[in-house]
Design a protein around this nucleic acid. Structure first.
Lengths: 228, 228
DNA sequence: CGACCATTTGATATGGATCAAGCGATGTGG
DNA sequence: CCACATCGCTTGATCCATATCAAATGGTCG
């Protein structure tokens, strides 16, 4: 668990924003919101924002993957969501973050001033609508996540794989950006259980695992084990 | 589990709206949104809306309590949220409900046409902001709920009691509107475990349980068992 | 008073956690 | 270029928290 490394990276956002003029992979964006975003990069395990920090920014993933999580006093960690390219994150009902966010691998995001977005939304009802839609979609994801956590280990892992497959829209083959520990902390399982369950799904022919991070899903068989 | 009774009540919303002109407990409301609400009553275990029904309305609880839930094919049920007087519910990112909602006891709600609210929001940025805030608050609740589900039984029950105590703002004494089964389905535990855990919390002096539905909390002691 | 339903309590079973090794890939220094 | 250290993952053995099965208790309503 790279908590200490992350904590180390927790300096004020301003200091970090030595932003390259045109970072790799950032194209010209059309939407009003997208125009405002400043590109910014984070390296593996670097903290993007920390719990109880002021929620000054909204983020949109350009490349890489992000984990949003909370840690309890005794070290238990729950990952509340993974964010993949195209996803926005950083929404908070309050002015302070209730969770932390870290780069899983190297990550590029677009950063938006929360206040700027909010005041823009106050004037432009279209922006307001999009803001609401994104929050509502996030709510939907969160509810689905909560729903996962009452299922059996096999159902949780199957649902997770189906979710990732759907989101990375490379039907079949998925390249997991996160470790088994991350998966476990997202699903409320230990790494051992995640690993065993994957092996079991493989032996049943629901998936193939050519390398640890690459999984080929048999969506039909997986869905049948899924219970949702 | 009153599933069959609920299913029985699943007739179109229009048919149900033999609304009394001035149902008990409905005061005059000031806000723009509140002005538009039509009061409506539901009796114990009556369905308010069903999964995959069109999400045509938003609701605000006036009196009573509501459970929002999903049921799996094999009968497992998860309650995603409880709504108490003052809470709004029925927000959905899509046009169809992803869950069902039922009256726990007798309930009075105000009903709002979703389209009317949305088009009002498109014109009035203040309404739009309130809509967004409510959705964001709901998101926050959902995340907290997901977080609950990775804790131990004792931590879940303690958190639940603290949440209910905070929401019913009658510090100390809480009157639970829901059954042990409801609590279990909300916390991802069986009724037996809920019951045992309450007994145990009582024996430790963290709570008193004069009657099954009435619980006196020792917030200090409870928080210490809470881990959050 | 009696029937019914919700809740509590007890006995046992089990899925996943924990503890403990082993394995394979990746990277580093000699 | 290879030996070795490291790290992430897998597999095995055992334990424990909670589920399940079963029965007793209590509260409510006819």
């Amino acid at each position: 668990m790279s908590i200490s490394a992350a904590a180390l990276a927790a300096r004020p956002l301003e200091q970090r924003s030595r932003r390259p003029a045109h970072p790799a992979g950032v194209r010209a964006y059309a939407g009003t919101l997208d125009m405002m975003g400043a590109p910014m990069s984070f390296s593996r395990n670097e903290e993007i924002y920390g719990e109880s920090e002021a929620a000054e920014y909204l983020y949109k993933v350009v490349s890489g993957a992000v984990r949003m999580y909370k840690v309890l006093a005794d070290g238990r960690r729950q990952i509340g969501a993974f964010y993949l390219p195209g996803d926005m994150f950083g929404f908070e009902p309050a002015d302070a973050h209730a969770s932390s966010a870290e780069a899983i691998g190297d990550v590029t995001v677009l950063v938006f001033k929360r206040n700027a977005v909010l005041s823009l939304a106050a004037r432009d009802s279209d922006v307001a609508r999009r803001l609401w839609e994104m929050t509502a979609r996030e709510l939907d994801r969160s509810r689905k996540h909560a729903f996962l956590l009452i299922l059996s280990a096999q159902e949780r892992v199957a649902s997770f794989l189906l979710e990732m497959a759907a989101r990375s829209r490379t039907s079949g083959e998925i390249e997991l950006p996160m470790s088994r520990q991350d998966i476990g902390d997202y699903l409320g399982l230990t790494i051992e259980t995640v690993s065993r369950t994957l092996s079991q799904l493989e032996s049943v022919g629901a998936i193939a695992v050519p390398t640890a991070r690459r999984i080929t899903c048999n969506s039909g068989t997986l869905s049948r084990l899924n219970a949702c």
